[in-house]
């Protein structure tokens, strides 16, 4: 057994203390034959510090496309020749999407908008949308609306949004290669305000943006420092027309190494499989991830692309004897 896994068994599994950047890097560079042991350990860590439940979430785009920012992976930036057009979802359709999500047994419904930060129109749409969902659907509402002011943070709390997603996307040292219209520090500032407001912090990113393996370790360490309630882990699905449209997809084994490493860095967080798992890991990847540290999934479609069927994911959870986290357990 690799030395780092021995160390992690005592430190992370035994004491609940996550690996530091050097430890994460050691896991990310383990030889292939050590990968099953790393995944097994990450699974044990998840079972010990989080339990067997899996948190199921659905997401929907309230405002798609036409974003003024230039995140190089994103098909919704208005600055690239992406075929994604700007479109708004109306409130009846938003409520319907929440109902579809709740019907899968999901406890989380995240409303997302492609914006730098919300304007008055978006905040009004949110206020009406969240109220309509709460009146009709038994589900917790989360939001992802870009960078916030303190007033907007307070407003979201007032609406009853219980968790806010704002991804750092990649490590601090690589961020300027991926986004030039705003800074990593600006994102961090929004996360700080969200944390102080009492909303749960959801913060993750995308692997496969061209970062080095050292930068992947740096990212895990920075997330661990932030200590988010939830970390959604995406793998780049290269989008036509974006600057990263020709980037190769992350190799399946590297994706699994990253899952194990991120879990060993953050033993207690909700580690969610988000976008790109179908492309990077195929159908089998979902099982491998759920047995390697992941304890949450996005079911159904993503914002602009489609996902595995919710039924397939739920069947798999049943087979793995991993109960879907119930609403009562999250309140």
């Amino acid at each position: 057994m690799a030395e780092i896994l021995d160390q992690a068994r005592t430190q992370v599994l035994g004491n609940g203390v996550g690996l530091d950047e050097a430890g994460v890097l050691a896991v990310l560079t383990l030889p292939d034959e050590q990968l099953p042991a790393a995944l097994q350990l990450a699974h044990e860590v998840r079972m010990r510090w989080c339990g067997p439940e899996v948190e199921v979430e659905g997401i929907v785009s309230l405002k798609t496309g036409g974003c003024p920012e230039d995140c190089h992976f994103c098909s919704q930036s208005g600055l690239f020749a992406s075929p994604v057009r700007s479109v708004w979802l109306d409130i009846p359709s938003l409520v319907e999407a929440a109902k579809q999500t709740a019907a899968t047994g999901a406890t989380e419904f995240c409303i997302v908008a492609a914006v730098r930060g919300p304007d008055a129109r978006l905040m009004k749409q949110m206020r009406e949308g969240v109220a309509a969902i709460k009146a009709e659907v038994d589900i917790q509402v989360a939001a992802s609306l870009g960078m916030l002011t303190q007033e907007q943070v307070d407003e979201l709390v007032d609406m009853g949004v219980h968790r806010y997603n704002h991804n750092l996307e990649t490590c601090r040292s690589y961020f300027p290669n991926v986004v030039t219209t705003h800074s990593w520090e600006e994102r961090w500032e929004t996360l700080r305000m969200v944390r102080e407001s009492g909303m749960e912090v959801c913060c993750g990113g995308i692997l496969g943006l061209g970062e080095t393996v050292e930068q992947r370790a740096e990212f895990a360490a920075q997330l661990a420092e932030l200590d988010p309630h939830e970390v959604p882990l995406n793998f780049l699905n290269p989008r036509p027309g974006t600057p990263l449209g020709d980037q190769p997809v992350v190799e399946g084994r590297d994706a699994l190494r990253a899952i194990a490493a991120f879990r060993l860095a953050m033993p207690r967080t909700i580690l969610r499989y988000a976008g790109g798992r179908e492309i990077t890991l195929g159908d089998l990847g979902t099982r491998d991830g759920l047995l390697g540290g992941v304890n949450a999934v996005i079911v159904g479609n993503y914002l602009t692309t489609l996902g595995r069927s919710a039924t397939d994911d739920l069947k798999l959870l049943e087979e793995l004897k991993m109960p879907v986290k119930a609403l009562s357990a999250t309140l």
């Binding site: 785009s61 798609t64 075929p83 994604v84 359709s93 999407a97 479609n301 602009t304």
Partner: peptide
């Protein structure tokens, strides 16, 4: 296209307004 909705109209090549929701598009 297995994992993406269409983006262009196949008949006139216009970019379409596409809305993806959890259970369809």
């Amino acid at each position: 296209r297995e994992l993406e909705p269409p983006r262009f109209c196949a008949r006139c090549r216009r970019r379409m307004k596409v809305q993806v929701v959890p259970a369809g598009w």
